[in-house]
């Protein structure tokens, strides 16, 4: 088990745009799902979806969280939002520990963080007008009069590039990209400091992806937003992130600023991920390091380093001993025995 505090100490923002207390600090976050079996529904085992993750996000900073599907990155996002209860660890929002806050006490903190979902179709209630969808957070928190809310929704529509005349339409009358803008407008309604994007562009066409990412970046500059940007596509993450955390089977394996990750990745898994990013030039060839096999089951994660079953450099101690995250340079942390 990696030392839980090691990464947290090492990940104080290096080149985060603004100093001060981090917007979000996550320490030793774990989410184990029990697998219940038998008549008494006793836990026969656990799915180690998230198994000790530490990071922090500064004001106005974007942290990209990448990894293969099934590595637990979505669970991290949901747990931070307290949509899923964490098994262990702590979540601090602007210095306040929200890990175990009861529902009603959690409410005011929900204004500070919002989430954008991957699927622009199922994330909007098909029976509500988009104006009502975007205005709903205001209604829930009892903000403004009916007229004020309507004006705010119109302003939000305008900001994300939709016509406020479309407020009375239903979600099915919009394209995927427009729907994602509606989802962004909804997330912005409460003026949060942190937005968690759970693969917010993965379901969109490439040209629309760029528009949405640019919109997110403009909004960040304007409102000093912090993003936790979850994605499986490094090319997308590179453009928007200040720092990148690479996740594998419930743990962070490498954490550094975006340039370091792309120019000198230290973890073999990061290397493999990078070599999978296509280069838009047919004449250039790259030594592709295609990983063999599948991600091992999070029900029985391999002993030692989780990655050793697929690592081309694995040694004897990788199979028995979990690597402790090491700081290679300020702000660059790697969990690998070989570095």
């Amino acid at each position: 088990m990696p030392d839980a505090t090691a990464i947290a100490e090492e990940t104080a923002p290096v080149d985060a745009p603004a100093a001060g207390t981090p917007v979000l600090e996550v320490e030793g976050l774990k989410k184990h799902y029990p697998i219940r079996k038998g008549l008494l529904r006793r836990a026969a085992g656990y799915v180690y979806a998230v198994d000790g993750v530490d990071f922090s996000i500064g004001p106005g900073e974007t942290l990209g969280l990448v990894g293969e599907s099934g590595c637990g990155k979505t669970t991290v996002g949901r747990t931070v939002m307290r949509l899923i209860e964490p098994t262990a660890g702590s979540i601090r929002l602007k210095g306040k520990d929200i890990t175990r806050l009861p529902k009603d006490e959690m409410r005011p903190y929900r204004r500070e963080m919002q989430i954008i979902f991957q699927d622009p179709y199922s994330s909007l209630n098909p029976r509500m007008t988009v104006g009502d969808i975007v205005g709903e957070p205001l209604l829930v928190h009892g903000i403004g009069s009916r007229k004020e809310r309507e004006e705010r929704v119109a302003a939000l529509f305008d900001r994300v590039g939709l016509r406020s005349a479309q407020m009375r339409n239903y979600p099915h009358e919009f394209s995927g990209g427009q729907r994602q803008r509606i989802g962004i407008a909804r997330a912005l309604a409460l003026d949060p400091s942190l937005i968690i994007g759970d693969e917010p562009v993965s379901a969109l066409d490439v040209s629309i992806q760029a528009q949405v990412i640019n919109l997110l970046m403009d909004l960040q500059e304007e409102k000093k937003l912090s993003y936790l940007f979850i994605a499986h596509d490094l090319a997308v993450v590179e453009h928007i992130s200040h720092r990148i955390a690479v996740m594998y089977l419930g743990r962070l394996v490498e954490f550094a600023d975006t340039r370091t990750i792309f120019t000198s990745p230290q973890h073999p898994y990061t290397e493999a991920l990078l070599s999978a990013v296509p280069i838009p030039d047919p004449r250039r060839k790259r030594n592709k390091r295609i990983l063999q096999g599948d991600v091992p089951s999070p029900v029985r994660p391999p002993p030692g380093c989780h990655f050793h079953t697929r690592c081309p450099y694995a040694e004897e101690r990788c199979r028995t001993e979990a690597p402790i995250p090491k700081r290679l340079s300020p702000g660059h942390v790697v969990a690998c025995h070989l570095r």
């Binding site: 959690m106 409410r107 204004r111 979902f117 699927d119 957070p137 928190h141 409460l190």
Partner: peptide, 17 residues
């Protein structure tokens, strides 16, 4: 389990609502 229900939860909406 739909994301729009999760979105409502993320806003702090009560379960009955």
């Amino acid at each position: 389990e739909m994301p729009f229900v999760e979105a409502a939860r993320a806003q702090g909406m009560s379960e009955v609502r």
